[in-house]
Each structure stands twice: as C-alpha cells, then as structure tokens.
C-alpha cells in the first residue's frame, strides 16, 4: 500500500510540474506582453524589463517562476492592486468550495435515489423516468438552467434571493444549478452498479434465506453499489469548482471560477497562471485521493497498478 501510494504521489507531483511548465509557455504565446504599452517609451520599457528580469533568457525566467511557485509564491496580480495571487485565490476558494460541497451533497443523495429507483424498477416506467431525469441533467447546460431559475424562482416567484452570496439562502439556487449535473452522473452510475449487484449470487442467496426485499436492497445491494460510487465523487468535486465558472458569474458570487474568467478578460497573466495551477492542484489531489481510495477498497488494483 505504501509503495502504491508513493508511486501515485510521484506521478501527481510530476503532473503538476508538467502543467505548470505548459502554462508558463502558453502564457508566452498570449497576445501582448505586460509592457506592451504604447505610452511607454522604448527606454522605459527596457528599464522595466531589466527590473523584473523579463530580459533574461526564457529558461532563466522559467526557472525563477518554477522556484517561486514551489515556495508558494505565484507572483502578484496586475489587476488587483498588485496583491499576491495566492492570497486572492485562498480568499476566494472557501466560497467556491462551500458551493461545490453543497451541490455535491445534494447531487449525491438525489442521484443515488434516482439510480436506486431505476435499478429496482428496471425497464419500467419508473426506470425510464429516472433515466430521462438524469439525462436531462446532463443535457441542460447550467448556463441555461441558472438564468432560468434566477428569473423564475428569484424574480417572478420571489422564493429565493436573486443573486449575491450573503447568507445560506443565497447559496440554494446556485447549488441546485450546479448539482443537476452531479445528480445525472451519480444516478447513471448508481443504476448500472445496482443492476450488476442485484444480479449477483449473494443477492439471490439473501433472498433465498428469506430476507425482506427492503432488507436485501438496503443491506446488500445499496451498500455494495456504494463503494464504486464513492470513488467517482472526487473528480466530480473538481468538476464542480471549474463548472462554477458561469454560475458564479450569473449569481454574482466572488469565487474562483469567476476569478478565472475575470483574469482572462483582463489578461492578468500571473492570475491566469496561478488559477490554472491551483485548479490543477485540486484536480490532482482529488485524483490522488481517488486512486488511494481505490487501492484501499480493491487490493487488486494495487497489484495491477492502476484503475481502468
């Protein structure tokens, strides 16, 4: 287990290294440079570039950038009054994390319920209904659903706050808009998983032993289907954080999805790089947890070296 974990860890760190590198060089390709200002004279520009080491060879700049990043220094934002990028990211993260977590909890429970119904009533009206609901969840983009909810639930019906993030009530609509996609994924996954488990011999045995239908479902089927479902949750968490790009903007919530969009719009280079690497860290950590969880749950994976 230790060796397996260590190997996943090495891969994770290496992945981050690659991402940071690629991001750095992509930034060099972006149109314009920080000093590409017509109102600066050539001498002033050269002076500035020397001051910030931008006249160094690209390799030197790259090394410096990586060294700083390794120490947690992502550089300073041009846009936000020269504030350190990491500080801004950490300040914005709790908001996104809260939203994502809430959407996840809602999504997992509703999704599981739908999945269970679908599997138990396999190939009936209920199954089709559950499937259609799940498919609708994937099919309706959150950027269509969000504004619709905002308009109907917020403005027309007045049930929930229209936008902002001032209290828990404010978080309900954006959470639901985000969770729809989770519901869909979990429901599908749960359904197939349940169907498979229900076909297993031990279920037949449990039934033969005289366990009630409900008992079979709860004690055996759901529990055994749950494990694989848990493992898909981690990558979904990150999907939520990135998926909130539009939702946060629509609901005027100052989270990191919104920050990423803003930093692109205003070409805040260090912020774009910082956000990209930050997202990557989240993603890689989630995958790492998932891999380790897999390893614990299913020892075979440790041996064969990876999941499929």
């Amino acid at each position: 287990m230790l060796r397996y974990t260590a190997r996943r860890l090495v891969i994770a760190v290496f992945t981050l290294f690659i991402i940071a590198t690629v991001t750095f060089f992509i930034m060099q390709l972006l149109p314009g440079t920080p000093f590409n200002d017509e109102k600066l004279s050539d001498e002033a520009k050269a002076q500035l570039e020397a001051k910030y080491g931008l006249d160094d060879p690209l390799v030197v700049q790259y090394a410096r950038y990586m060294a700083n990043m390794a120490q947690g220094d992502f550089g300073n934002s041009f846009y936000y009054n020269n504030t350190p990028v990491l500080g801004i990211l950490l300040g914005r993260f709790p908001v996104s994390a809260f939203l994502g977590f809430q959407a996840m909890v809602v999504g997992v429970f509703v999704g599981m319920a739908l999945g269970i119904v679908g599997a138990l009533k396999h190939n009936t009206f209920w199954d089709s209904t559950a499937t259609v609901v799940a498919v609708l969840g994937i099919s309706i983009p959150s950027f269509v659903l969000g504004p619709l909810m905002q308009y109907w639930v917020g403005v027309k019906l007045g049930w929930l706050p229209i936008a902002f993030f001032d209290s828990w009530k404010h978080s309900i609509m954006p959470s639901i808009a985000l969770s729809v996609f989770v519901i869909a994924i979990i429901a599908r996954f749960m359904r197939t998983e349940m169907l498979e488990v229900l076909a297993q011999d031990y279920i037949t045995l449990a039934k033969a032993k005289g366990l009630s239908a409900l008992g079979v479902v709860l004690r055996h089927a759901v529990r055994n289907s749950l494990i694989p479902v848990i493992t898909v949750i981690f990558p979904l968490v990150v999907g939520l954080v990135t998926g909130s790009l539009v939702i946060e903007q629509i609901f005027a919530i100052p989270g990191i999805g919104e920050l990423f969009v803003t930093s692109i719009v205003v070409s805040d280079y260090f912020m774009i790089m910082g956000t990209t690497v930050f997202f990557a860290v989240l993603f890689v950590v989630a995958l790492l947890i998932q891999d380790i969880a897999y390893g614990i749950i299913d020892p075979r994976i440790r041996v064969s070296g990876g999941k499929e």
Binding site: T15, L16, L29, L245
Partner: peptide
Amino acid sequence: MQRIIEILVGIPNLVVVILVMII
C-alpha cells in the same frame, strides 16, 4: 504511454480548452 495518459488526465480540461481558445 500510461504515465503520459495519467498526466494528461490530471489536467483540468476546461482550463486547457479555454487557454487554447485564447491563443
């Protein structure tokens, strides 16, 4: 080849797609 894939999987695709679209 599998290590390469594992690294690619670790990259948040939305972010990559957006960066490509800007360039």
